[in-house]
Amino acid sequence: MKDIASSGVVADEGIATLLSRVVCDAQDVVRSEIDLQKAKVGAKVGQAKSGVVLIVVALLLASLGSTALVVGLLMILTPLIGPVAATAIVAGIPLALAGLLGFLATRHFKRIFGSAETIA
């Protein structure tokens, strides 16, 4: 059997030097892996920015469309029932729905997290 200590590599370099090189190489691999993951995250963030811009534009267009719908409803209802009643109906229905949804959301969160008296 060949003696490990007599091999050329170990004879030229000591074990401490080889271990030091292994540690340095491992550090280089870890740094490279971190850089790779950073690059992947950066690419995903870039793609996410495009998606966010599309969502913002979609929300803006939806807002414009709903504003046009409200104005159209006011124009249609005003000759039929008058401007005050038309405004009350067109503004009141969404406000009532928002209040109902807010109440339901509050009740839902109280069921999940408990009321303030239960927590305290």
Rank of each mutant, 00 (worst) to 15 (best):
V22W: 09
V23Y: 13
C24M: 11
Q27K: 15
Q27R: 14
Q27T: 10
D28S: 14
V29H: 14
R31L: 13
S32F: 14
E33C: 03
E33M: 09
I34P: 00
I34D: 05
I34K: 14
I34W: 07
I34G: 02
I34Q: 11
D35E: 14
D35M: 11
L36F: 15
K38Y: 10
A39I: 05
K40F: 04
V41R: 07
G42R: 03
A43S: 08
A43T: 04
K44P: 00
K44N: 07
V45M: 07
V45G: 01
G46S: 08
A48F: 10
A48H: 13
S50E: 15
G51C: 05
G51E: 07
V52C: 02
V52E: 12
V53L: 13
V53R: 15
L54Q: 12
I55R: 06
V56P: 03
V56I: 14
V56G: 04
V57D: 06
A58P: 01
A58V: 05
L59A: 08
L59E: 10
L59R: 00
L60E: 04
L61N: 03
S63P: 01
S63G: 12
S63I: 04
L64F: 09
G65E: 01
S66Q: 11
T67A: 10
V71W: 06
V71S: 05
G72N: 12
G72T: 09
M75H: 12
M75Q: 15
L77Y: 10
L77I: 00
P79W: 02
P79C: 10
P79F: 02
L80E: 09
L80T: 12
I81L: 02
I81A: 04
I81W: 00
G82S: 04
P83R: 12
V84C: 01
V84Y: 02
A85M: 08
A85K: 07
A85H: 06
A86S: 09
T87Q: 08
A88T: 01
I89E: 01
I89H: 03
V90P: 06
A91H: 00
G92N: 01
G92D: 00
G92I: 03
I93C: 03
L95S: 10
L95R: 05
A96N: 03
L97I: 15
L97V: 14
A98E: 09
G99R: 08
G99F: 15
G99A: 07
L100A: 11
L100H: 04
L101I: 00
F103N: 05
L104D: 01
T106H: 15
T106I: 08
H108A: 07
F109W: 13
F109S: 08
F109L: 15
K110L: 12
R111H: 10
I112A: 05
I112V: 15
I112G: 01
F113Y: 14
G114A: 02
S115Y: 06
S115F: 05
S115G: 15
